[in-house]
């Protein structure tokens, strides 16, 4: 199998970021919240490879830990979004009738306003913790997976082998997990990369707005927020985490594109 160079670059950086997230404590030269210098926003030096941040902490270490938080939240939210979205989507397609109507119209309603606005409304009353953020992001995004999963499952549901299983007298659980799931897996997996990117951008945006990961913990979006003030003094510290977010998203996108091209599938939206 020949992997196109673009996908190879994507795979390399995706793997790099994930490894950095997993082994963060081993790689980071200093602690995440450790103040290492009395000078804030020091330029990059051999001692502090990316310089120091707005409180005199080592920016590189903070970014390595921040990447861990970003990737963890995005992964967890993607998993929630996929399990709820695809199971409900399959369920709606198999059961059909009013269950399908009710679920589909409810999803239409949620998708009729931007997820960010809805998330802000919800976050104005709930406590802002990592768990709450993951659940909110996961459920809001599950609507998109639902649409895709339902569309795929409706097609599969009329296949001969599903008919045969129904005539054999298999229950709904069997139909969903043994007949539809294995056949719907490849378009769903291709979509997963795109949902992951969306989650990375979503949590980064929330944290950047001060409504995501709360200090002293920080993810990449939060680190951008912390150092944003420096920009007007000509200090580019906030650009590093923002570039990290983009390179992660672009790499995953390159990989997802390649997977998408290999599997003929439907595409979900963004927004």
């Amino acid at each position: 199998m020949r992997i196109p160079p673009a996908a190879l670059i994507g795979l390399f950086f995706t793997a790099l970021y994930f490894l950095m997230a997993i082994f963060a404590p081993l790689i980071a030269p200093y602690g995440m919240a450790e103040v290492v210098s009395n000078d804030i926003w020091l330029p990059p030096s051999s001692e502090f490879l990316l310089g120091t941040d707005n409180l005199g902490r080592d920016l590189l270490s903070r970014m390595i830990y921040g990447g861990r938080t970003t990737i963890f939240i995005a992964t967890a939210a993607t998993l929630i979004s996929f399990t709820t979205g695809s199971i409900l989507g399959f369920f709606a397609a198999v059961v059909g009738d009013w269950v399908d109507q009710a679920l589909s119209r409810f999803v239409d309603l949620i998708m009729s306003i931007p997820s960010l606005i809805l998330a802000l409304v919800i976050l104005s009353v709930t406590p802002i913790t990592v768990g709450v953020l993951i659940v909110i992001m996961g459920f809001l995004d599950a609507t998109r997976v639902f649409r895709l999963a339902r569309a795929v499952a409706v097609d599969i549901n009329v296949m001969d082998y599903v008919e045969a299983a129904k005539l054999r007298g298999e229950g709904r659980g069997w139909i969903i997990f043994r007949e539809i799931l294995p056949n719907a897996l490849s378009p769903l997996v291709a979509e997963m990369g795109l949902r992951f990117i969306f989650m990375v951008l979503f949590i980064s945006t929330l944290s950047f707005l001060g409504l995501g990961v709360q200090p002293p913990a920080a993810d990449w979006g939060g680190i951008v927020k912390e150092n944003a003030e420096g920009i007007t003094y000509g200090i580019g510290a906030a650009l590093y985490p923002a570039i990290a977010i983009s390179t992660l998203a672009i790499s995953v996108n390159l990989v997802a594109d390649w997977v998408l091209n290999r599997t003929t599938s439907l595409k979900g939206g963004r927004g």
Partner: peptide
């Protein structure tokens, strides 16, 4: 297009600002 889908709005903002 691929790049801009993957770039958060605030990065474009800060790059232009900077």
């Amino acid at each position: 297009t691929l790049a801009s889908i993957s770039v958060p709005e605030f990065l474009i903002g800060y790059i232009l600002m900077f």
